[in-house]
Design a protein around this nucleic acid. Structure first.
Lengths: 352, 352
DNA sequence: TTGTATGCGTTATCAT
DNA sequence: ATGATAACGCATACAA
């Protein structure tokens, strides 16, 4: 059966959206009363309130956000800046941010910089033009180049990754504690020679994970010289490269503790390319629990980021800042859980 | 060691952003002249233009977008609505959209609905409040529930996936042609029994891919009853489920042509769980070329979505619509390429 | 409880 | 080439 399509009728001139004035006329009150009926209904008599609501329903009136913003001197939008919105962690964080924002009448705007300073500058202009009331930074470094120091930023909070050099309040996971859980897990599986893959001079989060690794090794009484630390930038490729680098050495670890899941994927790829089995020959752990982590071969043991909670709390903090509050904590750290899958086994003695 | 945090100094009153008036005062001209110097510099004498530019530089003036929008009766923001911004295709499409928009002075706003009609309604309100001049839909179905029929939508274009029932202009890949390329590739590898995984009654894009499959099978002279078509929703899980379903039957195909890469991942997972080798025992193809496709075991042969081009063209179309143009083409289809990796081999006779 | 009037920062029209 | 000014839609101080 062919169903008839419903076509929207196109008026040659789009009927302009209703203004507060039309509502007022229809309800036979002044525009001031309409405005009050919307924002402070308790200041309006029940009968007029009803008239106004009816008129609003009929006209389909919605407050013009630009006029409102202009009058109030602020917008109801929050800008979220991320270098790469394709980041597998991003979408759930964003969901948390959005939910919290929406609950308080704010909208969320997303900007992605692709790590290009020029892009960052555009968003800085955007902020300065008053179109956003606050800023969420999903990036370890300020994306605005030098300008940031000069310009007044609106209330800002970092999320997921501490902002490297900005003194900006931050909501994220307790990286150190998470890393500690991981290394302890590896240790208790019997590993003594564990490499940390993915330290970084520019990513504070990775540094903290590395610190957790060192703390755990220390506590297990493993001397510093038996620790292996390889740099990386959190990508799959960096994990693969780390394997290449490590296999040039004489002594290999029995386990690879990676700064991120993506790095772990790279490590497993590199291992598999050399014919090794995980966890038979080597154990591997990640950090973040990205969606892919449960689909890898074998599924990855990792630390789960409580993403939506982080998003929620970050937005709550920003909203508090916006409300003039001055929260005492500069960092809100959420405790993460270890999710054990099957990429960790006991250490195995190998002849290479 | 406890490191001292660096605190930004907070001025009690943030210095308000400069207005056009301050610029005018500094440049010793009227605000009208400043506005002209910015928007129609050719109408201003060279000397005053210089004075104005200097004043702008000193004050750090940026046009207040809300005031401008109010005056002009339109905003310079485009709303992009997607059900899931975690979609691996989304970020590059978005980059294309953004680049094109930015080049024309527009900003991009992202809304994600998570498939909840309530969320869609929020964005509808947002549109009605005049905060966005146009709309890009990254979704196969109108996300606004019934309201969409009632309300006036701003100029709108669908991207990546045709909008199912809306008569909305669309920019995307030529799904049928892409599918045809895939099935022809499989055919020329010797396969005759090919299953199509991931047809859908509600996703137009998948239907078109299925049509391409049928067209190719037809052209190869393979009778309809030898075709196998399994429904799906494009997810990893649906691919896995399809395998379970197919292995209940007596006759198995030698190749699985999947409607999406994610489906293909699920299929390969299912196959591998049953101990089969790809492409030794079965061949598998995908569609989209998501980042993960080159990391699967084996790397996936698939159709590459020219994502940023699609984004660019979609935004260009929307901008044209905004400019009052009425383009003749309701669909702009971009031709995709087959990227051959190693998930396809010759058909193998098996005893189950 | 309700109405009048002002101004938010811009752009565009109309003078000059 | 430049300036004065009205209007965009709204929220609120002040009057009534």
């Amino acid at each position: 059966m062919v169903r008839p399509l419903i076509f929207r009728t196109f008026h040659v001139s789009q009927s302009a959206p209703a203004t507060i004035e039309e509502v007022a006329r229809l309800a036979q009150v002044s525009i001031a009363t309409v405005s009050r009926a919307i924002h402070t209904p308790e200041k309006v008599s029940v009968s007029t309130r009803q008239k106004v609501n009816q008129a609003i329903a009929i006209t389909g009136y919605t407050t013009n956000a630009m006029a409102r913003g202009l009058r109030l001197g602020r917008s109801n939008m929050i800008l979220v800046v991320a270098p790469d919105i394709g980041d597998p962690n991003f979408s759930h964080i964003l969901a948390g941010l959005e939910n919290e924002a929406r609950a308080h009448g704010y909208g969320v705007l997303i900007g992605h910089t692709q790590n290009e300073p020029l892009r960052g500058m555009e968003y800085l202009k955007f902020l300065n033009s008053g179109q956003a009331a606050g800023l969420i930074l999903f990036t370890g470094t300020l994306p605005f180049g030098h300008q940031a120091a000069t310009t007044q930023l609106p209330p800002t909070v970092g999320v997921f990754e501490p902002v490297f050099n900005g003194g900006i309040p931050y909501v994220g996971v307790d990286d150190l504690a998470g890393a500690r859980k991981t290394v302890d897990h590896l240790l208790s599986a019997g590993h003594r020679s564990i490499a940390f893959i993915g330290d970084s001079r520019t990513r504070l989060a990775y540094q903290r994970r590395r610190e957790g690794y060192e703390e755990g090794m220390q506590a297990a009484g493993i001397e510093p010289k038996r620790r292996i630390i390889i740099d990386g930038d959190g990508t799959v490729e960096s994990g693969r490269a780390a394997i290449e680098q490590l296999f040039m050495r004489d002594t290999l670890p029995t386990a690879f503790m990676c700064a991120t899941d993506q790095t772990a994927v790279g490590v497993m790829l590199g291992l598999s390319a050399r014919g090794y089995d995980v966890p038979g020959d080597f154990s591997v752990t990640g950090f973040d629990d990205i969606p892919q982590a449960s689909f890898t071969q074998p599924p990855l043991t990792t630390i789960r980021q409580p993403r939506s909670i982080i998003g929620r709390k970050a937005m709550a903090l920003l909203l508090a800042l916006l409300g003039g509050e001055r929260p005492e904590d500069q960092e809100i750290l959420v405790m993460p859980d270890l999710v054990v899958r099957s990429s960790v086994g006991g250490p195995r003695q190998r002849s290479l």
